[in-house]
Design a protein around this nucleic acid. Structure first.
Length: 945
RNA sequence: AGGACCAUAGCUCAGUUGGUUAGAGCGCCACGUUGACAUCGUGGAGGUCGGCGGUUCAAAUCCGCCUGGUCCUACCA
């Protein structure tokens, strides 16, 4: 083995080997355990969130696989409608200078597929780098043939049950992308805005109570004035009670619009009058519905002003009687330009009463960054009410459990207030809606055009045109857990692996994805999609900032694995910025944070870092310090293994029939191993990967390496030690290491496999890969309390001597003569059994119990229980230093004693606390007092010198 | 406006049902190279557990209020 751990040399080699040996596919044996990967965007690349999530899933899958479960980790990618379409549109624009409309639908779609084939394996390659043991043979894509079939099936069936319908509704419209988007894709941002107060003249000579001939309405969106169909006042408002049923004249347009009484108008806000624009505002839409006001749309799909308005009733039927005329001056103007002109014209007409500056929030499309416009369009909707009910019950009944549990409340509160889901998108890339229209606009929904003709009895020669729209990406990914398993066919896989065991996902897509998956899956399979949902937080940078391209603080997991030099990193972060003026600041910050670039750390270290930071339900500040630390941990494990191999390879490791003798240390480490195994297993069961990784870390470093390996040396290197003892120690060294590797494997797959290959034969374990070895199982009968106490004693004595050395400035290597005083029988036994270890580990010249009949030499003293460890002062100890040290020790004990005396002096405590607690305190008091007395005695002796 | 989560060492975080001398890693200080590892070893310093109040014999832990932070939902005519 190399002297230092070099991950890059082992990682790709092992992954290829595992994949070639088909280690990732289900074994076909044991209780099924399955995870469906949240499908990443097909043309995306792996970010820290993926890497984190994949680490958790892989750890779970590898662990369950070792436990003998029939594991399936289903892999695949998502077609990601908007994201992918935009990407390819930009690419085509850059390379060919053409828009998608120049190419036409078919050619453009071909381009997208081309791009998918070209770049679709990028993220899957990265997934391999992470060590993800997904079953590649079952890889799926949300637009492959099987998915196409499942999507058609679901759409048609929902339509047949009237759970999908089409209608003219107000939706969130993205004027840049020319598509509807869902509420969830809208991001609300705070802004400084203006608030214009306009006068709307009353008609027919009517006046207000205050004697005005106009009403005042205020708006942040003057351009929607053109579509106003009413003015609302509160029904309780005395100021306007007499005006209800009267009219105002809509300025600039000249339309007569009614004054209606509606609760939407807030008496305390502004004048108490509200303009109502049902076709351009969600609240007004509701007012329009209640008050039976017409809907007048004044915008094009680009959110520019129409030449002629379009009027509808609330059902979406055209209203030909309404005059659609709009002022010519605004026709074709963009909404923001129109706003300026309308404000100017109102002012010129003397109808602008006041302008206020206010802060408000504006809706933005999370993809386009454009301001979203509520727009009246024809769309397809899923009626969610009946689907939501079983989906809520599934969580209430505990068929689905969220980890951590508090996300259930978030889920419930959202599910109880669901709006119908707009599923049509005016895009080209995606599942085209399986609906056909005849020339009259009649709609026929079926799995294919042929089926439509058949189903609706349409003549052969009737011309049909398929709906131009595609489905929301989340409609297809909502079918992920069962669509990937062959539904609607009744496949073997579906029967075996559905419901899946656990979904690992971020809280940010609970609404987008998780909730919809639950609804659709319950509906179509009668089963929940998964039994548990492990919800994790966002990976943030070291300062707690969200990682984003524009901030220039993005870390690429692959760079953490392979390392990257500073210049490349700076280039990567500043290369393709939307705001190039930030480049300098980003470069500076990057150079300050990573003056040497990023060193390679390897996949295992990165995975271990994620796991150690994986506390549920809160965001994670990624800690580079930990990454370094766990790379060092890998190195530690590597070197410990080198030591073991150096001492065991070619030697008798106790595999044969020859007698074996186990030392105290051997029994102790085996005992501690059992406890660690139990701890790690329990932590995994509870999704506490931080505890699992820490338990392993502590055992490996603080016990196996720091103590056990050191304790093995006196046996292995002592010519006087028996063959039986050497055999026993070698056997233990190897066996414990072999178990450590299995315990580590789900978390650190590469290094564990690499080392295991060499260690396993020495431990008498056969097998081709650690992947299919059994998960370590704690055996209670190997827990040895005596050995544990004895080793604690041994450590105590050694630490005592080290302590004296450090505080007395005695060279670490200088051999000392040590005495043990006030020994009881146990101390003597331990002394005898551990003589060899004490001599070696404490670097002693001699050690012996003190003859109590004689005066003890003047010494520096440390306590181990009631026993004293004495290092004679002779000429090597500084009197003042020792007095100081003793004073410090005595002070410490006094404080402890004071605390306990106070507690025991409290009658209430003695009376009310459980007996055991009181007894424990009394015991501690005695212990501290004894210690204090010994130290004082010692101090007095030295002081008297 | 409503709700959720968080606040523990300089930094990143553990701390299970109230009873521990409140822990780990990194960083810091001192010392240390023959025999696995300087990506290391040994020893050490560092915390009134955000603040105030309450419950209790006992509070980092339970309750209330406050402050600060993150996020979600809603509203903003």
């Amino acid at each position: 083995m190399d002297k230092t751990y070099q991950p890059e040399q082992i990682e790709s080699r092992w992954y290829e080997r595992w994949e070639a040996d088909n280690r990732f596919a289900p074994s076909g044996q044991g209780e099924p355990y399955s995870i469906m990967i949240p499908p990443p965007n097909v043309t995306g690349s792996l970010h820290m969130g993926h890497a984190f999530q994949d680490t958790i899933m892989d750890t779970l899958i590898r662990w369950r696989r070792m436990q003998g479960r029939n594991t399936l980790w289903q892999v695949g990618t998502d077609h990601a409608g908007i994201a992918t379409q935009m990407l390819v549109e930009r690419k085509v624009a850059a390379e060919e200078g053409k828009s998608r409309h120049d190419l036409g639908r078919e050619t453009f779609i071909d381009k997208v597929w081309e791009w998918k084939h070209e770049s679709g394996d990028h993220i899957t390659r990265q997934l391999r780098r992470m060590g993800a043991s997904v079953d590649w043979s079952r890889e799926r894509f949300t637009m492959d043939d099987g998915f196409y079939k499942a999507v058609q099936e679901v759409f048609v069936r929902l339509h047949e049950e009237d759970l999908i319908y089409r209608g003219k509704r107000l939706v969130n419209w993205d004027p840049t992308l020319h598509t509807a988007i869902s509420d969830l894709e809208v991001e609300n941002r705070d802004q400084q805005g203006q608030f214009w107060h306009f006068r709307y003249p009353l008609t027919d000579g009517v006046k207000t109570e205050a004697g005005h001939d106009h009403l005042v309405v205020a708006t942040t969106r003057p351009e929607t004035l053109l579509g106003d169909t009413g003015v609302a006042v509160n029904p309780e408002d005395p100021r306007y009670a007499s005006l209800v049923g009267k009219f105002v004249e809509l300025p600039l347009v000249g339309r007569r619009i009614p004054i209606v009484a509606d609760e939407h108008a807030d008496m305390d806000k502004g004048s108490g009058c509200v303009k109502v624009t049902p076709a351009h505002d969600f609240n007004d839409y509701e007012v329009g519905r209640r008050q039976d006001l017409p809907l007048i749309n004044v915008f094009t799909q680009d959110a520019a002003i129409l030449e002629r308005a379009e009027a509808f009733d609330i059902q979406g039927r055209p209203l030909p009687d309404i005059d659609p005329t709009l002022p010519e001056a605004y026709a074709g103007l963009d909404r923001f330009e129109a706003r300026k002109r309308i404000v100017a014209d109102m002012e010129a007409a003397g109808l602008l009463e006041q302008v206020e500056t206010v802060s408000n929030t504006l809706p933005y499309g999370d993809r386009s960054g454009d301001v979203i416009e509520p727009l009246l369009t024809d769309q397809w909707f899923v009626a969610v009410e009946s689907l939501a009910k079983p989906a809520i019950e599934a969580v209430e009944k505990g068929d689905i459990q969220f980890v951590p549990k508090n996300y259930e409340n978030m889920y419930f509160s959202w599910m109880r207030d669901l709006q119908d889901w707009c599923i049509s998108r005016q895009l080209w890339w995606g599942h085209r809606i399986p609906a056909w229209y005849d020339a009259e606009g009649n709609v026929f929904v079926a799995r294919s055009e042929a089926e439509a003709r058949d189903k609706y009895g349409l003549p052969e020669d009737l011309e049909l045109a398929q709906d131009e729209d595609v489905l929301d990406t989340w409609f297809s990914s909502g079918l992920w857990t069962f669509g990937t398993l062959g539904w609607p066919e009744h496949t073997e896989e579906l029967a075996t692996f559905h419901p899946s065991s656990v979904l690992v996902t971020g809280f940010d897509i609970i609404f987008f994805w998780v909730a919809r998956m639950i609804m659709l899956t319950c509906k179509f399979t009668g089963e929940v999609p998964f039994k548990q949902v492990y919800v994790h937080g966002l990976i943030r940078d070291g300062q707690g900032q969200k990682m984003s391209k524009s901030k220039g603080n993005v870390l690429d997991p692959i760079d953490l694995i392979d390392g990257i030099d500073l210049d490349s990193l700076v280039e990567k972060r500043t290369g393709s910025l939307m705001q190039p003026q930030k480049a300098q600041a980003i470069a500076k910050a990057t150079r300050a944070e990573f003056p040497e670039g990023i060193e390679p750390h390897g996949t295992d270290a990165l995975r271990f870092t994620f796991l150690s930071q994986a506390t549920t339900g809160r965001d994670i500040k990624f800690d580079m310090g930990r990454l370094d630390g766990y790379r060092n941990f890998c190195n530690k494990l590597w070197n410990a293994s080198r030591y073991v191999l150096m001492n065991a390879e070619g030697q008798d490791t106790g595999l044969g029939d020859a007698p074996v003798e186990l030392s105290l240390a051997d029994r102790w480490i085996v005992s501690r191993l059992q406890q660690t195994e139990a701890q790690v297993t329990r932590a995994m069961e509870e999704f506490r990967f931080d505890h699992a990784s820490q338990a392993l870390y502590e055992f490996v470093w603080n016990e196996y390496c720091d103590w056990y390996l050191e304790l093995s040396k006196p046996v292995l290197w002592d010519d006087n030690a028996s063959a039986e003892a050497k055999r026993g120690t070698r056997r233990t060294l190897v066996r414990v290491l072999e178990a450590i590797l299995r315990l580590a494997h789900p978390m650190m797959p590469y290094i564990s496999e690499e080392i295991w290959q060499r260690v396993a034969p020495l431990a008498g374990v056969e097998g081709e890969s650690i992947m299919v070895q059994p998960w370590p199982q704690a055996e209670d009968d190997k827990i040895d309390a005596t050995a544990t106490h004895d080793i604690e004693w041994l450590k105590g004595v050694i630490v005592a001597v080290r302590n004296i050395r450090a505080e007395m400035n005695i060279a670490p290597g200088k051999p000392l003569d040590v005495h043990l005083a006030k020994c009881d029988q146990e101390d003597l036994r331990r002394y005898i059994q551990n003589h060899r270890f004490l001599m070696k580990l404490a670097k002693l010249n001699s050690i012996a119990p003190l003859d109590e009949s004689k005066e003890a030499p003047l010494s520096a003293t440390q306590l181990v229980g009631d026993m004293e460890v004495l290092v004679p002062m002779a000429d090597l100890i500084d009197k003042e230093a020792e007095l100081q040290r003793l004073a410090k020790e005595i002070d410490k004990q006094e404080k402890l004693i004071g605390g306990i005396e106070k507690k025991l002096g409290n009658e209430n405590f003695v009376a009310k606390a459980p007996e055991a607690v009181v007894e424990k305190e009394r015991g501690k008091l005695q212990e501290y007092q004894a210690a204090r007395n010994l130290l004082v005695e010692q101090r007095d002796k030295i002081a008297a010198l």
